[in-house]
Amino acid sequence: MNQSSLSGMWRAMVSRDLTLAMRRRADVLTTLFFFIIVVSLFPLGVSPEMELLRSIAPGVIWVAALLASMLSLGRLFSDDFQDGTLEQMLLLPQPLSVLVLAKVFAHWLVSGLPLVLLSPLLGMQLGLDSDGIVLMMVTLLLGTPVLSLIGAVGAALTLGVRGGGVLVSLLVLPLYIPVLIFGTGAVDAATSGMDYEGHLSLLGAFLVLSVVLTPLGTAAALRISVE
């Protein structure tokens, strides 16, 4: 196994999944609109009062991001599973976990990154100030990859299982809780003038840990599910 073939594989995998996503743009946009709609429902359901909305804004945006990223998990492996390309991936000489990481990265680019870029708009809707908005973006930037990485394990485990879409939410949502706590905690701390660097470094630590560990779990889960 040499370096160049590994990086060649990485590039091939990422560009493949991005190309596929571009040819099925509607799927990507659905998740994005879901995110926007969920957040927009809160003022209607709770109250249009800005003071109240501001205080719940981080939690609302984060929970919506959690749900949106979970919804998009279905696409991660199921198409490849159905047309047999996943089977071929398991038979590649390259380590499966690196391949998985490339796939999750591509998935995050089309499902997680748009959420990050869109969050200022929603933050403004809910009356967050500029500091809060910037921090919202930073926490989402650190946190959404973790969601994709953890979610990949759940998506791999529920591959081809009946009711897999709902089941995956049962499996991964409890595991998303630490990210939710520290993601919203950072924004809350910033808006109330407290120190938030600790939260960010913890989110960073979650990201590093999940980059290292979850691809191994996902690879093992894929091998079990493809049997």
């Binding site: 596929l20 099925r24 159905q82 047309d83 047999g84 390309t85 089977e87 071929q88 038979l91």
Partner: peptide, 11 residues
């Protein structure tokens, strides 16, 4: 390995 599925992306 060439299985039941063709292992090609239709897009």
């Amino acid at each position: 390995y060439l299985g039941h599925h063709n292992g090609i992306k239709s897009e």
